[in-house]
Amino acid sequence: MKKKLLFIIPSLHLGGAEKGLINLLANFDYEKYEVDLLLFTKEGALVKDLNSEVNLLPISANFVTFSKGLVASCVSFFFQLKWKLLWHRLLFVMTNRKHATNKAEQYSWKHLKNFLETPTTVYDVAIGFLEKTSIYCCVDVVKAKKKIGFIRTDYSSLQLDKKFDENYFHQLDYLCANGTLSLEILKREFPQLDSKLKLVENVTFPKRINELAKAEPLFNSDAISIATVGRLELPKGYHLAVEACAILVKKGYDIQWMIVGEGSERANLEQLISQQNLQSNVILVGQKENPYPYISQAHFYVQTSLHEGKSNTINEAKILCKPIVVTNFESVFEQITHLKNGFIVEKNAESIANGIITLIEEVELKNKVVEQLQVEQLVSGKEIEQFYQILEH
């Protein structure tokens, strides 16, 4: 008989974990496994890319009501005489307002879980495919013989309540990181969990990325073109990108820097771009289902992150053989070797600008980096095998 698996992730918007899940399920062994997927919202650009073999579970009626917003959901619960849910809806908002974002997600979980229904199936394996809520749901809501969680970033950068998470991590059979350095950070943060900590890397498909990268010209052909891809959020350090661009322009370089992504920092970035008079140099192109043409056509790929796990976009830029300038967040050294397959700089605008200038001016160095990336071309397949081993162990 097929083993029954349940994957849990809040949504299928354009994020690294979401793309990783889509890639994993695209080439899964459906002769051996029956796969269900639990989402908190069925909205998201990647929903249409979900493998047809995957069964998308219905969202509970109470959670649909919860998702309407505070006033609408409270009115609905009031008229349905669901006083307990009305109370938890109010407490959820109060808790989120009281705490910083990541801890708020932890502390508000005890209220959020009341709106979810336990699936009727008892699964062979349940997988919380992302940190925080996905793992909490896997532990508290789902019935399964084995439970697995994933942490897809540098845990130490999340500023979470470790004791809260430790309680949940102890109830998992395995806790997986998507990179060796992220795994080492978990071992450092939770040494008591060492036997449960495993490596399962993100699934990438170079052939598909290269095919998707083909498109009509996107950049001004006369400018030095730079691409950056990721959510417009503070940890991505895009304010440093804008400041670095200002330095480059002041030094006489004709720069066109396209930042692909959407998020809460858009207004702040637009204001900074305007203050620096860089409207023709830094373009916030928004969310794109296919960001690969931007990477492929750029002269350079630049990532200004303050914190990251093992980065999907760096892997994708490597696949497309782009000279990479990246800040020295802890896990970057797993993917980039300075002056060999990329250029690692400090987390400040001056250093980022100088890194870009080095690759502009030192053509021989840039060509050596590209040649090394061509040699390193990523081979997909081992990541799925890593995951199968965890499922069967």
Rank of each mutant, 00 (worst) to 15 (best):
K2A: 12
L6R: 04
L6Q: 07
L6G: 03
P10W: 10
G15Q: 01
L21Q: 06
L21Y: 09
N23F: 12
D29I: 13
E31T: 14
E34L: 05
E34V: 06
G44W: 11
N51G: 02
L56W: 03
L57G: 02
S60P: 07
F66T: 10
F92N: 04
K103L: 12
Y107Q: 06
W109G: 05
N114E: 10
E131W: 01
I135W: 00
V139Y: 09
S156Q: 09
F164T: 09
E166T: 14
N167F: 12
Y168R: 02
Y174P: 00
L175C: 02
C176L: 15
S182H: 07
I185C: 11
E189G: 10
F190E: 02
L193V: 10
S195I: 07
L197H: 11
F205I: 15
R208C: 02
N210V: 15
N220C: 04
I226T: 10
I247A: 01
G252N: 03
Y253R: 00
W257K: 06
I259R: 02
I259M: 05
V260D: 01
G263Y: 07
E265Y: 12
R266Y: 13
L269H: 12
N290D: 06
A298R: 00
Q303I: 15
T304L: 02
S305Q: 10
K310C: 13
I314C: 05
I314N: 00
C321W: 01
V326L: 04
V326E: 07
Q335N: 08
I336W: 08
I336G: 00
L339A: 05
K340D: 05
F343V: 09
K347M: 13
E350K: 10
A353V: 05
G355Y: 03
G355Q: 08
L359A: 12
L365E: 02
E376L: 00
Q377R: 06
Q377E: 07
Y388D: 11
